[in-house]
Design a protein around this nucleic acid. Sequence first.
DNA 1: ATGGCGCAGCCACTGCGA
Length: 259
Amino acid sequence: MTSVATFNVNSVKARLAFVQHWLEARQPDVACLQELKLEEENFPFDVFEAAGYHAYVHGQPRWNGVAVLSKTPGEVVQKGLPGAEDQGARLITVRVGELDVTSVYVPNGKTVEHEDYGHKLTFLERLVDYVGERTKSDGQVIVGGDYNICHRDRDSHAPERLAGHIFHTKAERDAIDGLLAHGLHDLYREKEPEGPMFSWWDYRAGAFHKNHGLRIDLLLADDAVLARTKGVLIDRDYRKKKEGETPSDHAPVTAELDG
DNA sequence: ATGGCGCAGCCACTGCGA
């Protein structure tokens, strides 16, 4: 079995003990991380090495930042989304064995009226093109990340109220369809067609307790990976406090692959 | 009925997240 995860940690420094606990308990073979919130030179490589992981990092001060962790050595293929480097450190691709692994953090967009929304749509256009390039590699393609989009109504706790709002617009949903049109699959949705599980809950207003969440953290992967996928877990348990440590507002998503 | 947090940088707040 090979397990592949994606996890928006909301600051790797603030979450370090929590993430160590997660790696120790779940032992993913490969993990895509987002929202590191630090520069590569400040990344705690030693802690991850001690936990048994190689870490490949694209960071910047304060915001964004992505990484791929792997138990076996990998090779960095790309840092930064081509054509969208000005939007921050939001993408890294690493070849790990037969897997072509990308960790991506799509811009939030704020509101449909805000200029950041246009930047989000531009980023997504570039991402669709980039994923098209990835599928031409001889590796098995996995693009894990925080997409900041509810692809379908089922992926939102309030699809009617939020229809047309940020995360719920046709243009954003079309962008996910554009990624799928390159032959990728939403692994959780493939395995859990009726699954109501979310991957993010606001820190405020008791949202987790009330299950007011969104499913925005996705593992997208090609036919070869889908064929190997035995199951996908959205690890809600890791949205809870662990040993006094504050959780991220996102839960990890993990796929178990044959072989 | 309403609002209810947490992070980084930097020093009393602001910007940002989704």
